[in-house]
Design a protein around this nucleic acid. Structure first.
Length: 499
RNA sequence: GGCGUCAUGGUGUAAUUGGUUAACACGCCGCCCUCUCAAGGCGGAGAGUUCGGGUUCGAUCCCCGAUGACGCUACCA
């Protein structure tokens, strides 16, 4: 029994979308398992019947997969300790409750909600810890049984011994709670439904979990769980409580701080490897601490629970974006094309992705080459590349520039040159024409380029013409849902709106 | 109220588990490149480690206290 294979679990409740905080917990569990050669399993905590929904479970699994995590045991794939959904393990919990009741380690409590509320109020007034008095603990077992048999409803409470409850936490060291601060808490509701603290403990023990890695909001629950381990005579696992992720206002990260669900990160075009890298850094640092970018394999190799930091971390979009840009640079072009394409079909700018469409695929690859360095998220791509399909409305400032005497000279010369051209425009030819315009008007630098770019794209700033011109010319030859105007067509369209 | 956890630049992390001019990255500022916007390259500012006491020849690091933030205090998870 020395150093058993580590077994860890991620145990979300399917009551909503997977959130960054939970995703990080899942990631750390997974990294730990991979690093140590252990097992990572998924368990669904759906004892809250009111809020749990099957669709969330499916979404959860999809999000975890997207993040790149996998597990060897879980709800859909089964495993040696199945089932992995708590709602399907009710019988197991019931058996354990009977055992505890039989051994007098738990007892039936007939107190009403009103009685309990009174106790709480009293404790509050007397500035005492609000703990259950243990009133029903004194009830003789046979007496309690008769009352239960008579149909009186009851909850089951654990008889918590009055002794310190200690556990070891890998990121925080030894933690101790005085016994009297933990009351005889409820294991099973009067509805018969067992309570979270009870079932996690049973499941973790039965599933042979060796390391419980979870959010630090569970740290105050741990002494209760320790009491349960002790009641059953089970040995304790190692614990590792991860700090909270905060918003920039130092409050617990929530929807109030904007998008925080994993699904929303995917939608906006954050690459999973970037998110994983970022989340790994949020509360952990490799030895030495100077390295920031990691591949998945590097994370696995470097990750140690001992290096997880105990203090809360503020979520920082800037850094995530930096890591995302880095991931974009590293990613194979074909993968990026796959990921980026849907944003363009959604706007009716590209047809649905089809490998046969070699010309469109190739052209789009170059569109990406040009605009990818300018985005933090893939989602921003269409807006950056919008000028290919749409001439943006000219801003007042730009309109004034065109209307200025110098601007007007350039506009006139340039449009005349383009109209006089016969064939397709090449970057070389374009450059020649620009030089001619320059010579004729005396405009150079931004005085020359800005008006021209406004005519061509609607804005005075944007990509270099060398790269843009071929994209416009070739794009105009493609059969796309929304036509890309050629240089000439742009000049015509511009003249039409101005005249 | 009780109990618990946490505390290094704006942000995330480092700092031979007591000895450093407190390091790296993001962000910010400036310069270079450049018609522009990004990208890229170079450089800079920014903390004396929440505060107050100890222990020590010496504390970011050990102890005590305060403060603040957060969590638990449910027949939620």
């Amino acid at each position: 029994m020395l150093n058993p294979t580590p077994r860890v679990r991620f145990a979300p409740s399917p009551t909503g979308l997977l959130h960054v905080g939970n995703a990080r917990t899942a990631l750390y569990n997974w990294l730990f398992a991979r690093h140590t050669g252990g097992e990572f399993l998924l368990r669904i905590e759906d004892t809250d019947v009111e809020r749990s929904e099957a669709r969330y479970e499916a979404q959860l699994i999809e999000d975890l997969r997207w993040l790149g995590l996998d597990w060897t045991e879980g709800p859909q794939i089964g495993g040696p300790y199945a089932p992995y959904r708590q709602s399907e393990r009710l019988e197991i919990y019931q058996q354990h409750t009977e055992q505890l009741l039989g051994e007098d380690k738990a007892y039936r409590c007939f107190c009403t909600a009103e009685e309990l509320e009174q106790e709480r109020q009293l404790a509050l007034r007397e500035q005492r810890a609000q703990v259950y008095s243990g009133k029903c603990r004194a009830l003789a077992a046979n007496q309690a049984q008769t009352r239960a048999a008579a149909g009186e409803t009851f909850a089951v409470r654990l008889a918590v011994p009055d002794a310190p409850l200690r556990f070891h936490d890998i990121v925080r060291g030894d933690v101790e709670f005085a016994g009297e601060t933990v009351s005889d808490f409820i294991l099973v509701r009067s509805s018969g439904m067992p309570v979270y603290n009870y079932v996690v403990t049973i499941d973790d023990a039965l599933m042979r979990i060796t390391h419980v890695i979870r959010g630090d909001d569970h740290i105050s629950n741990t002494p209760r769980q320790v009491a349960i381990y002790q009641a059953f005579g089970w040995s304790l696992p190692e614990f590792a409580h991860l700090s909270t992720i905060l918003g920039s206002d130092r409050e617990r990260l929530s929807k109030r701080h904007g998008a925080t669900s994993i699904a929303s990160f995917r939608e906006m075009g954050i690459l999973p490897q970037a998110l994983a890298n970022y989340l790994a850094l949020l509360g952990w640092g490799a030895e030495g601490g100077t390295r920031e970018t990691f591949t998945r394999e590097e994370l696995i190799a470097e990750f140690k629970l001992e290096r997880v930091t105990p203090s809360p971390a503020v979520f920082d979009w800037d850094k995530l974006h930096w890591l995302n840009r880095h991931a974009i640079k590293q990613a194979p072009p074909a993968e990026l094309r796959q990921l980026a394409w849907p944003y363009f079909t959604a706007r009716q700018w590209l047809p649905p992705l089809s490998p046969e469409d070699a010309a469109v695929v190739q052209w789009f690859a170059r569109v990406l080459d040009l605009f990818l360095p300018a985005v933090d998220q893939l989602q921003q791509l269409p807006e950056k590349a919008a000028a290919l399909w749409n001439l943006a409305p000219v801003t007042q400032e730009d309109a004034a520039l065109l209307a200025s005497e110098a601007g007007e000279r350039v506009v006139r010369a340039f449009t005349a040159k383009i109209r006089a051209e016969a064939g397709a425009m090449t970057p070389q030819r374009f450059k020649e024409l620009m030089n001619e315009v320059k010579a004729e008007t005396g405009a150079k630098g931004k005085d020359l380029f800005h008006p021209v770019r406004i005519i061509l794209t609607g804005a005075h700033s944007g990509p270099e013409f060398d790269k843009l011109i071929p994209l416009l010319e070739e794009g105009s030859q493609l059969d796309l849902p929304t036509h890309v105007l050629s240089v000439r067509e742009r000049v015509e369209a511009f003249s039409a709106t101005v005249l």
